[in-house]
């Protein structure tokens, strides 16, 4: 039997107010208390309108303090409030399960303790990237990796698919404690060199930043890969690398299936 108290984690999306689902708004309104991790005053003001009993968890952030400590403190705050019998809503910007260590941790801990805990999806930066860039990740496939992880670990990429590298404004930082994105140049140079193993230097890449305010457009900056080390980046910069070329057909597999390249071309042609 579930204990009294529950946690529902929701996402506020990227464009505050406009990106929130009806379900998310209802969860926020109906909660006993709402814990928030949102990046600006606009978002905080909107959430406080929906439910005045909000707690701003960005107060856990501290200068030169590892985010790992901060995120554990956030999870603890959520768990303790549920243990007090509250029906808690935790509202994270974007999708609450993407780059959101604290939300997953709190849900795992509460479930292990016998409490009800669940997550509702939200609109993420990746969703806006697909819409703003007009790139269908289903067309060529998509590899989506946090930029520093891509550098620190031995990862392979597929130049036939779309590559999305997140948090390039923090690339190469291992401290998880930066206050500002002003120390990425060395990491960006190393990242560029790694990418040049897969792509030609004139391959066009895109620096993308989703718009949080409808007043201003998203940042969509096309540059040659060779220019990447000189790019000016922020905490919300993402690098999107379109496929270098179309993947060649695997003739051996087609033969096993009794197919020819013409069969594939005909199936994908609208001139029938």
């Amino acid at each position: 039997m579930n204990k009294q108290g529950s946690l529902t984690v929701v996402g506020t999306g990227i464009k505050i107010a406009g990106d929130m689902t009806l379900n998310t708004q209802a969860q926020i309104k109906q909660a006993d208390i709402v814990f928030t991790v949102v990046p600006d005053k606009v978002s905080k003001q909107w959430l406080a309108k929906l439910n005045p009993n909000t707690v701003d968890m960005t107060e856990f952030y501290g200068s030169n303090k590892s985010r790992l400590i901060t995120y554990n403190e956030m999870a603890n705050a959520l768990v303790e409030s549920v243990k007090q019998g509250n029906n808690v809503c935790a509202a994270f910007y974007g999708h609450p399960g993407v780059f959101a260590y604290a939300s997953h941790l709190a849900i795992r801990q509460l479930k292990a303790l016998g409490y009800r805990a669940k997550m509702q999806p939200g609109i993420s930066a990746e969703d806006w990237l697909v819409a703003d860039l007009g790139i269908d990740p289903g067309k060529s496939g998509c590899i989506s990796i946090e930029a520093t992880q891509f550098l620190f670990y031995q990862r392979t990429i597929d130049p036939y698919s779309l590559l999305v590298l997140w948090q390039i404004g923090l690339v190469g930082d291992h401290t998880l404690a930066l206050d500002k994105t002003d120390n990425y140049q060395r990491g960006l140079k190393v990242l560029s060199n790694e990418l040049l193993k897969y792509y030609p230097s004139d391959h066009q890449v895109i620096i993308y930043e989703a718009a949080t305010l409808a007043l201003f457009p998203p940042r969509i900056e096309h540059i040659a890969l060779a220019q990447l080390p000189q790019a000016k980046l922020t905490a919300i910069s993402t690098l999107a690398i379109p496929p270098y070329q179309e993947a060649p057909l695997d003739l051996a597999v087609l033969k096993q299936l009794g197919l020819t390249p013409e069969d594939i071309d005909n199936a994908l042609s609208i001139d029938k």
Partner: peptide, 11 residues
């Protein structure tokens, strides 16, 4: 946009 306080940085 350059202040990481607003973002959930993590690798």
């Amino acid at each position: 946009p350059i202040d990481t306080k607003g973002t959930m940085i993590m690798f």
